[in-house]
Design a protein around this nucleic acid. Structure first.
Length: 675
RNA sequence: GCGCCCGUAGCUCAGUUGGAUAGAGCGCCGGACUUCGAAUCCGUAGGUCGCAGGUUCGAGUCCUGCCGGGCGCACCA
């Protein structure tokens, strides 16, 4: 791991700068550490001399030389040199570095102080099967969870279930009105079919049924009302549908190694009157007020602050003199409670966010939703509940994984926190936003979706997914295809494996395919999902990285069988070995470079959490695998005759493999025994 | 109209506290399996980093303006 080295270097250089140039702590420039373009130049580099050049009125090169001279000694550092262009290059003690990283499991990170992080992701409407867009959410969210845990931060994972919303109501309408079914009959269907697929089609039919018949929306409104108030057959059907569909979603997510600690049900937020509590706080702090005139008369509204970063301005400074048309300068307002007294979903979300941060002063009751090997999956409930449950909510950091279209509302959430006097909580609330997943034209065609050649849609480079039209790639269909393809590949390469083992391995490979695919793009980029591209197991893909680990493992298996040399013994022998092979004779630093590059995982994970940009992690893991594969071809281990060279190569591969396994784990990808 | 995001090789994309020569994958063309497994590797070709200014010792990265595209701005969720 690299971050401890960075920390030591920064602290040391700061001391050197302070004493050599008489700088006080406040005026010290940040010491940026990066990687020199070639290994021959050094292992780490800093451009800090450039930063100081102006202030010290001195050439960067001279400053770098001064620092190098005054550097003294630092444990783990072999030398420091000033490059002609002003860079300060740092060479590490290679042998010590390798030994320190082998055989010792990496300590959990600092944990960034006390307190837990709460990640909410997935949150699929419980009325139909999950599709590819939902997978992007879940995979990004789960990767964030794993990244936080990797660096030692306690994490609570929640999946929000909108069981009282329009989408569930629509499916209820489908069952009752279109199909004329009773609760018992629907339960039978749920017991005997792919229920999420069934509802997928039914939902599309309901949408069609509404189409062009606005009077039918009355049915939806009535159904929604029944659901919200409970005690009706519609309410019971909605509860059944939501419960069963959630179980389908959980099964789908489990295939992807995605798991949760708590299911939060919107119905419980309503029944437990979280909103009433939050409303009191908002009114008390003057964050909302009752609008008495204009088109929003009778609504409780929250003023919208356009620029969140700017301090709130006192109103009515007369800067904008009211013109002839007063409407234009009107303060923008967001309705929180409608004039009929019903709270909007912004209000419900504010209450939920307050609870997440421990600011609400009210809690759910809790029940177990299902049993898992690792312990029960918990869910919220309104009545009763178990006395003995883990603590939920009250987090120090909150990450809401929701697509970019929700940015406006997420911004309002932060604003509400500021408005009630908790800017610190707003600061610790993150909207982890990401772009949508659309379909490539080829894939849309494959799904039987016809597009008129000259239509506007045909000119776009992608086709929008639409749950309402039933257009989209169902998550399980995609997984099935990936796993099937992997099964064929595994079977042809490993005919001796049994069917069960082949299937198990194929599962791991298929999952690696999707998860890597969904993480390798920047979150701000719209993915035009193409089936063939996602099915590729070559080049930059999850299976490519798995393959590198499998190959590495094969080496050590052979080493053990053929030479009776196991990894522990090998690592133990390194201390007494000549480090020549690490030192880059003939400018060949490849063994050392593998170790150095592999050590950067913690640095990469830290950056990924800071920027919420996971493509960097994907690319990093891929580049490690790539470096290994190239090394694999160039530099044999089993057949290397020089014993010290052989052992150092093996040591480098052990470390690289271990780091690769950890990196894959952060991405939720397992390593098959063969492939 | 206002706000946010995107624009980098033929295609799909990395390049995020500003740093040394802008990188991958796919595709194209040409090579490497009697070798630790070819889901691999090696090599060739391919770039006005949307355009124009600005800041800086240094800009794909920061600022301003513009062009092109996407999304958002309900008494919906």
């Amino acid at each position: 791991m690299m971050l401890p080295v960075h920390a030591r270097l920064r602290a040391h250089i700061a001391v050197v700068l302070a004493s050599r140039f008489g700088l006080d702590e406040a005026s010290l420039p940040p010491v940026v550490l990066e990687s020199p373009p070639t290994r021959a130049l050094g292992d780490l580099a800093t451009p800090v001399a450039f930063e100081l050049a102006r202030r010290l009125r001195k050439a960067p090169r001279a400053i770098a030389q001064d620092i190098a001279e005054a550097f003294g000694t630092l444990d783990g550092v072999a030398g420091v040199t000033a490059a002609p262009n002003g860079y300060l290059n740092i060479a590490l003690d290679r042998q010590a570095f390798v030994l320190a990283r082998l055989g010792v499991s990496p300590p959990a990170g600092p944990g960034a102080g006390s307190g837990k992080a709460l990640v909410e992701h997935t949150a699929i409407n419980p009325n139909k099967a999950a599709h590819i867009g939902h997978l992007r959410n879940a995979v990004l969210g789960d990767t964030l969870v794993r990244a936080l845990r990797f660096r030692g931060t306690p994490v609570e994972v929640q999946n929000y279930i909108d069981d009282t919303g329009v989408q569930v109501a629509d499916v209820v309408v489908g069952f009752r009105v279109l199909e004329g079914l009773t609760l018992d009959r629907i339960r039978t269907i749920a017991d005997t079919t792919r229920f999420d697929y069934y509802c997928w089609d039914l939902y599309a039919r309901v949408t069609e049924w509404y189409d062009g018949q606005p009077e039918r929306l009355k049915v939806r409104a009535d159904t929604l009302h029944d659901i919200e108030h409970g005690g009706t057959e519609n309410g019971d059907i909605a509860a059944l549908v939501a419960d069963r569909i959630v179980r389908c979603h959980l099964a789908t997510m489990a295939r992807l190694n995605v798991d949760y600690d708590l299911l939060t049900w919107e119905g419980d937020i309503l029944r437990l009157k979280f909103w009433a509590q939050a409303f009191d706080v908002l009114k008390e702090r003057g964050a909302v007020y009752l609008q008495s005139e204009g088109r929003l008369a009778g609504c409780w509204v929250m003023p919208i602050q356009e620029d969140l970063d700017a301090p709130p301005e006192a109103e009515g400074l007369g800067e904008d003199a009211p013109g002839e048309d007063g409407a234009e300068t009107e303060q923008r307002e967001k309705v929180i409670v409608r004039s009929n007294g019903v709270v909007t979903y912004v209000g419900k979300d504010i209450a939920y966010q307050f609870w997440k941060l421990g600011l609400l002063g009210r809690d759910f009751a809790y029940r177990t939703f299902s049993e898992r090997p690792a312990g029960p999956l918990w869910a919220t409930t309104s009545e009763g509940g178990l006395a003995d449950h883990p603590p939920f909510g009250g987090a120090s950091w909150v990450y809401n994984v929701i697509d970019v279209r929700q940015s406006y509302l997420q911004k309002l959430l932060k604003q509400a926190l500021i408005a009630v006097g908790r800017p610190d909580a707003a600061e610790r609330s993150h909207h982890f936003s990401y772009e949508m997943v659309a379909l490539s034209h080829a894939t849309a065609r494959e799904l039987g979706y016809a597009i008129a050649p000259d239509s506007e849609e045909a000119r776009k480079p992608f086709v929008e997914v639409s749950g309402r039209k039933g257009l989209g790639v169902k998550a399980d269909d995609l997984l099935d295809r990936l796993v099937d393809k992997a099964r064929v590949e595994v079977a042809t390469r490993n005919p001796e494996l049994g069917a069960d083992e082949t299937a198990r391995i194929a599962g791991m490979i298929g999952i690696a395919g999707v998860r890597y695919f969904l993480v390798k793009f920047s979150r701000g980029k719209l993915i035009a999902f193409d089936m063939d591209e996602a099915l590729s197991f070559e080049g930059e893909s999850g299976p490519y990285i798995q393959y590198a680990v499998v190959r590495a493992n094969n080496i050590f298996q052979k080493l053990r069988q053929r030479d009776g040399l196991d990894e522990t013994a090998l690592v133990a022998s390194l201390g007494s070995l000549s480090p020549t092979a690490l030192m880059g004779a003939d400018d060949n630093h490849e063994v050392w470079s593998l170790v150095l590059e592999a050590s950067r995982l913690d640095e990469v994970v830290e950056q990924v959490i800071r920027t919420l940009e996971f493509s960097g992690l994907a690319k990093y893991a891929f580049s490690l695998a790539q470096a290994f594969n190239a090394f694999y071809h160039r530099s044999p281990i089993l057949n290397e005759e020089r014993d010290d060279v052989r052992r150092w190569r093996a040591a480098a591969v052990i470390y690289l493999r271990d780091q690769l396994v950890r990196a894959l784990d952060v991405m939720g990808i397992q390593v098959p025994p063969r492939m």
